[in-house]
């Protein structure tokens, strides 16, 4: 996927790569028959990326609008939020939307890493 987003400025890039405070985490879930819907949360775009990775056994649960709002409010990336909303509007199915979202997030994280100097990937939030 080729992003239509301009590279983020340095300060935003750092935020894109950093975990948000616990209070600003985004609730997500997973459809895992026959257990049902299991709860989880993500605290960084890196974690969201992992949450969206394809899995033979289950489906990731995210709300696209909730994700867009979280990206905008908690991460602070308005451009990315607009793109997330675009996916929600255009994807022919939820699963295809997840796939596109995964690509979008991966691309954005790559941009951010380039901006901050290709430093090591954050391994997600810790307690």
């Amino acid at each position: 996927m080729t992003t239509r987003l301009a590279p983020p400025p340095h300060e935003l890039a750092a935020r894109i790569l950093a975990p948000v405070p616990f209070a600003h985490r985004m609730k997500v879930g997973r459809l895992v028959p026959p257990v049902g819907l299991t709860a989880g949360d993500v605290r960084s775009l890196e974690e969201l990326l992992r949450h969206l990775e394809p899995d033979q056994r289950s489906l990731p649960g995210v709300g696209f609008e909730r994700t867009a709002a979280w990206v905008e409010d908690a991460v602070g990336d308005r451009d990315l939020a607009v793109s997330v909303r675009g996916i929600a509007a255009e994807a022919p199915s939820y699963v295809e939307g997840c796939r596109r979202l995964l690509e979008l997030i991966a691309e954005r994280l790559g941009q951010a890493r380039e901006v901050v100097g290709g430093g090591p990937t954050r391994e997600g939030g810790s307690l």
């Binding site: 997973r30 257990v35 709860a39 990775e53 997600g124």
Partner: peptide
């Protein structure tokens, strides 16, 4: 199977990238 193979998954994902 089932639940005992899902209880820890949300937390593992925080630290481990490799599926």
């Amino acid at each position: 199977a089932c639940q005992e193979t899902s209880w820890y998954a949300p937390f593992i994902g925080r630290l481990v990238k490799d599926r």
